[in-house]
Design a protein around this nucleic acid. Structure first.
Lengths: 294, 294
DNA sequence: TAAAAATACTCCATAGGTATTTTAT
DNA sequence: ATAAAATACCTATGGAGTATTTTTA
């Protein structure tokens, strides 16, 4: 049976036009090389090399065989290499969804680290809130979602990334405008802006439970789906909002951020993925997420 | 080292989802198959098959490997097959030149036989007189020429195909019109049409030497380069012409063919080719020419 | 005559076989 | 309990090595 080895040997002989030099190049001795070429010719049932001439010449069939064999061996090697790269997660594609609040520091940091380690992987990035991420994971439209914690789910696994503290966003003309910090209980008489559960269930819920734990029922005057809209409502003086501290990276006209007195409550960011997704690229991505400080 | 064998084995396992059945299909026993797959995985440094499940499942890398391996093995086998076909002359191309007088029976016969045996070979056919054929052979524009004999040439070999007798073409109103045959010597008082040596040296020469051997100098009133033109001149009553009998296949208004009394002189048809042309297709073509009766 | 390919033989690595155990339904 | 894969062990084909003998330029 003809094997890749025979093609490699023949290519070496064809390139060197000399069995001895070819054998050296292949790190074998000359006699076995002669034998393997003879075996190849026998298996094919035809002569590839013009015998009784020096230097070695190829027959017509030999020339054709050489041309084709070159390409085939190259394809073979690339195929092996690509399989290994794929398995190591160094090649392929990954579709990542992320919530807007991760765009300031977290996503850039993760992407920078991942790109450095795996430049061969092409990344598709889509902004999505957490419920949409869960849906898209189930539909296999994304491989991983960077978002807020969510209830236990049989199909979806999640991996903790970081805890961030919350800050209070107030209108610039608010009486607290010169305070360096406020405590949670100070919020009990304030008009508050919160989120639709359908859009930001985790954060919306966080605001409610945090206030209740502090001993009061928040006075929610307006709900919104988007973080940027919430900031707009604050700027308009509609009320104050509890927001993850990462929003501080957007300074907005008419809005001031005031930290909460320690110990500030925190809200997590997680990476969510399908339990049955065995893609090695996903594993490499989670490794990066796990190893980094964000 | 990964060999084609490993790919074949893996493909069988992937297709059967079962080592035992795959081994049977490969005509080996099950344990060596398990071992070869293990060796393959070890060489690649990755798992292709999900262990501890039945039926056997492929890993992500395994699925990729399977897809690619299928194509590669297929290419490999086709490549071997094509090399063998090429070497046997069953595939490739052949350029054939032929003189017009071969178009009635000889060429159709040869082509029919060759096409039947080697349907994979594409044939390029060009009509050419014998001197042009020799020139084109030297320029490697054609592989073989079907034409008349020519003087010894260091580069060109030729192979006898057939001898054909000659007939006399006369105008319909000629006094011989009711004769069933004429003898060569009857031509000594006739106006004769012959060929330019530049176009048909062999046949032109044949006419001259044949007449001289019969004991007279032919009275040539007109020369031409083409057989069809010669027939036109005969029809116009300019003279009579000695022509190869194959022209009888074209019946022409105003022309009658009268055979020569036996023993009729004959003129050969040959296949000419370059001595250094080692193309196996040419060899197969010459085999066909040699074996046929035309 | 000198360099290179082909033989002759020896060795051993490994593909493949048989018998058996382990494992997953 | 049963069928299938893995393991253990053996055999033998054949790939590769060394020594030597043809070749041909």
């Amino acid at each position: 049976m003809v094997e890749i080895r025979h093609l490699r040997y023949f290519i070496a002989v064809a390139q060197e036009s000399n069995f001895s030099r070819a054998a050296e190049k292949l790190h074998i001795s000359q006699p076995p090389l002669s034998q393997q070429i003879q075996k190849l010719e026998e298996d094919l049932g035809l002569m590839l090399i013009e015998r009784g001439t020096r230097p070695v010449m190829l027959t017509e069939a030999g020339k054709f065989f050489y041309q084709q064999a070159l390409g085939l061996v190259d394809q073979f090697d690339q195929f092996i290499d690509k399989t290994q790269k794929m398995a190591r997660g160094e090649e392929g594609a990954l579709t990542i969804a992320f919530v807007s609040s991760s765009t300031y520091e977290l996503m850039p940091g993760i992407l920078r680290n991942f790109r450095k380690l795996y430049p061969g992987v092409s990344l598709n990035l889509i902004e999505m809130n957490t419920p949409q991420q869960l849906e898209s994971l189930k539909n296999k439209q994304i491989n991983v979602g960077i978002g807020r914690p969510f209830p236990e789910n049989p199909e979806i696994e999640s991996h903790w990334i970081l805890d961030e503290s919350v800050v209070v966003a107030i209108p610039s003309e608010h009486v607290w405008t010169n305070k360096t910090s406020v405590s949670l209980t100070d919020l009990k008489d304030e008009d508050m802006i919160n989120f639709y559960w359908s859009h930001e269930p985790s954060f919306g819920n966080f605001v409610m439970t945090t206030c209740r734990k502090a001993g009061f029922e928040p006075h929610v005057v307006q709900r919104t789906g988007e973080l940027q809209t919430a900031l707009g409502l604050v700027a308009a003086g509609i009320g104050v909002a509890l927001l993850p501290e990462s929003v501080e990276h957007t300074s907005r006209e008419g809005v001031k951020y005031i930290p909460l007195k320690t110990p500030s409550p925190t809200i997590s960011m997680v990476a969510a993925y399908r339990k049955d997704d065995s893609s090695p690229i996903l594993k490499r991505f989670l490794d990066v997420v796990r190893s980094g400080k964000y």
